[in-house]
């Protein structure tokens, strides 16, 4: 039992995490000390190191808030308020998740259809694929605020514009992964389908599609994460009043660092759980396909 625990990565991870927390607390003291010492000297208060440490972990608008401050703020804004309240992080998180999911579905469908086209039509393969690869080098997030404003100008507001950005971001990994996946069957298997006189559709549904599932889920994991990033950046323009991105922006306007950090941590938790959800679905599909026994 103990041996197993030592071999697993549980202990190393906890060590590293606790090291990070220790450094965080130390960093909070270091970064906040300038402001505090300045304040003490202006008010001519007596101060020693102990007081400095205690104060720097309890500032209202710290340069770097201490972890427990973030935790208590998260606790307050996640559980302390009604879910429908504008100050509840559950509400903002839900807004972001919903546009992430809608964008992910749109991008997923688009990506899979494009990949099917690229695999089956040679001219599409030669002409479109290089552009898709090249467009990955373009900072698409840079266009995000513009798309929001432009779509807002023609009356499209709310969830859809953000979902467009998410879709735009997440269709690339899916196209690339699926083209690879749909081409992954061995030539010998494709030849076998030919000897069975299978049509192209049959070869697709019975061979190419099942063979591409590992690639599909690998792409899904990447794209759901960037879909979330897309949704958050889509909420940055001033038009958006709800969502984690809007929380970040208002936090930075009013110097509410604790609010920024708790929004960031909620975003990270959402990202991690969405990726976990994808791995979970992958396991179910693999079990049903008989890959995992």
């Amino acid at each position: 039992m103990l041996n197993q625990l030592l071999k697993s990565s549980f202990i190393p991870i906890t060590t590293v995490v606790s090291l990070i927390v220790v450094f965080w607390y130390a960093g909070a003291v270091y970064l906040n000390s300038d402001v505090l010492i300045d304040k003490y000297e202006r008010q001519n208060t007596e101060w020693n190191f102990k007081k400095l440490v205690e104060d720097s972990w309890a500032m209202g608008r710290p340069v770097l808030p201490a972890p427990h401050q973030i935790m208590s703020d998260m606790n307050k804004s996640l559980f302390g308020r009604k879910i429908t309240s504008k100050r509840s992080l559950v509400y903002h998180g839900w807004v972001t998740i919903s546009s992430t999911m809608v964008g992910f579905v749109m991008g997923g469908v688009l990506g899979i259809l494009l990949a099917i086209g690229i695999v089956h039509v040679p001219t599409l393969n030669k002409s479109v694929l290089p552009w898709i690869i090249a467009s990955q080098t373009i900072p698409i997030l840079a266009i995000a605020p513009m798309i929001i404003v432009v779509l807002g100008a023609i009356g499209l507001t709310g969830l859809l514009p953000k979902a467009f950005i998410s879709a735009y971001l997440c269709f690339f990994p899916i196209v690339i992964g699926m083209v690879k996946g749909l081409r992954s069957p061995d030539p010998i298997h494709l030849d076998l389908m030919k000897t069975y006189n299978a049509t192209q559709a049959q070869a697709f549904w019975k061979l190419r599609w099942p063979a591409s599932t590992p690639y599909l889920f690998a792409s899904f994991k990447v794209s759901i994460a960037i879909s979330l990033v897309g949704a958050i950046v889509g909420e940055l323009p001033a038009g958006a009043r709800a969502g984690l991105g809007a929380r970040l922006l208002t936090g930075s306007y009013y110097g509410q660092t604790v609010q920024i950090w708790s929004a960031l941590i909620v975003a990270s938790v959402i990202a991690a759980s969405l990726v976990f959800l994808m791995s979970f679905m992958e396991r179910i599909v693999q079990k049903r396909m008989g890959v995992l026994s």
Binding site: L141, A225, V229, I232, S252
Partner: peptide
């Protein structure tokens, strides 16, 4: 960390 929305630290970095 590669799945996290690291872009979100931008406002903090601008403050620092």
């Amino acid at each position: 960390a590669s799945a996290l929305p690291i872009v979100g630290v931008a406002p903090i970095m601008v403050m620092w």
